[in-house]
Design a protein around this nucleic acid. Sequence first.
DNA 1: ACAACCTGCAACCCTTTGGTTGCAGGCAAG
DNA 2: CTTGCCTGCAACCAAAGGGTTGCAGGTTGT
Lengths: 110, 110
Amino acid sequence: MSSGALPDGTVVAMCSALADETRWSILTTLGEGDASASALARRLPVTRQAIAKHLAVLHEVGLVETVQAGREVRYRVIGTELSAMARRLDAIGTEWDRRLATIKHLAENI
Amino acid sequence: MSSGALPDGTVVAMCSALADETRWSILTTLGEGDASASALARRLPVTRQAIAKHLAVLHEVGLVETVQAGREVRYRVIGTELSAMARRLDAIGTEWDRRLATIKHLAENI
DNA sequence: ACAACCTGCAACCCTTTGGTTGCAGGCAAG
DNA sequence: CTTGCCTGCAACCAAAGGGTTGCAGGTTGT
């Protein structure tokens, strides 16, 4: 029951990727349109190299994909993996609450 | 559109809480039934103090609640917050893919 | 009353990680 | 061709985080 469609370590990896404010800034910025690392560095208060590291992390868990555009590498945000994990988290949370409800229901019928 | 029902920092905090293997071990163990910190320490390969820290983190983001049971403090896993964030993440991911689809659709109609 | 158990707080260590600077390479436009 | 911009790699730094040991305070049970 605890092991679903996507490997268990994936959830931890993706949550780890999402556990950073700067990374969310990058993601929301990319949500407004594809951009290169340098372009992101101009709009955000961090260095290009820092952004490059973050993009590497995001790419590794499948939250962004790269698109070669001439000499620059544009990054595009992908929602599929995120939605997949979200559905799984929702299922886990629901099961926890369902268990809770069952316990309380049993307690009332004593 | 980017600011929903729950504050934005909450998502980062919860993802940060979920970005640790040991914490997931604790959560899944609690999923099988409430337990105290010492009880968890017996079943998991870490110290009770380490578990106490993790439980504090989980408690702060509302993933667990405490129940005083005599001299011991039992912890209970809560799914509501998790499901709420999951739904939000799903919405974000869906919107990203929707934007992508719109771009591609526009590209075909040139 | 005494022993056993559970809790909380504090100090400490090591690893991870977010961020920086610096440098070298490659493609594109003038 | 040369200048500018974008990329990649490496070294380095400081802060955060996971984990441990140690100690003191309360409760329960015998």
